[in-house]
């Protein structure tokens, strides 16, 4: 059934960028399926198109050809407005540099995606509290980003990504800016979200130790995937 109805399915996807007169092809007729409940680490040389792929999956960039379906829902034909609403409901993004709003507290940062829902402020507060508890920051609600360590900021960013309960989490080098210990904390949280809460996770990383937390690793090179089983 998961093979029939994967979380993510790319069919014949092509993506090109035009810079001046030059056109570079990033993907040419790429196919990919990621089952529900998977935790995929994506590795590959810099410039190989990892971020571009996440952008396509998350509906913040568009394919030049081919189809993208997430949870059996085609997104390649949606308008900008439809994509925005779809992202709010279905995708959680986690970036390398946390990307929190500096003037908002941890709780307010986590609450941001809920402004797009019809939830009452009491329900919102409960959800924010739950999300911050999952990442172990229930005691830091009033802190602003600059009053927190990198690892703590990334945990706030994870709470923000999961607060509206999306099924797919897209992480672009989430530990790229963190020390080993903080990185391990973040990766454990992602593993928990995958194992306990059933979130499907696609994580781009350069770090083989980080990739070890995933269920499988995809190597992207010259626009193609090379799958390798993890060394047990």
């Amino acid at each position: 059934m998961t093979a029939e109805h994967p979380m993510v399915r790319l069919t014949g996807v092509s993506k090109r960028f035009t810079k001046g007169k030059e056109t570079i092809s990033i993907f040419d007729h790429l196919d990919l399926a990621i089952p529900r409940g998977d935790f995929v680490a994506m590795m590959g040389p810099s410039g190989s198109g990892k971020t571009t792929l996440l952008n396509l999956l998350g509906g913040i960039d568009r394919v030049d050809a081919g189809e993208i379906a997430v949870a059996d829902h085609r997104i390649d034909g949606l308008s900008e407005g439809e994509l925005a609403a779809w992202r709010a409901a279905n995708i959680g993004f986690i970036f390398q540099f946390y990307n929190l709003m500096p003037m908002l507290t941890a709780a307010q940062n986590v609450e941001l995606p809920l402004l797009l829902t019809k939830l009452r402020s009491k329900e919102r507060a409960e959800r924010v509290h739950t999300a911050l508890s999952v990442v172990g920051l229930a005691d830091r609600v009033k802190h602003r980003p600059r009053e927190m360590s990198g690892g703590q900021q990334q945990r706030v960013a994870i709470a923000r990504a999961i607060v509206s309960d999306p099924n797919l989490l897209l992480c672009d080098e989430p530990t790229g800016d963190l020390d080993r210990q903080s990185a391990d904390e973040i990766l454990s949280i992602l593993q928990l979200l995958n194992g306990e809460l059933g979130k499907t996770i696609v994580m781009v990383t350069h770090d083989p130790a980080a990739a070890n937390y995933a269920k499988r690793v995809l190597h992207l090179d010259k626009g193609r995937f090379v799958e390798r089983e993890l060394a047990a």
Binding site: G81, M101, L112, L115, L116, R160
Partner: peptide, 15 residues
């Protein structure tokens, strides 16, 4: 600019 990009990523529409 970056923060506006983040808001959009979260699903805030252009309008």
């Amino acid at each position: 600019t970056r923060e506006i990009g983040v808001l959009k990523t979260l699903g805030f529409s252009g309008p």
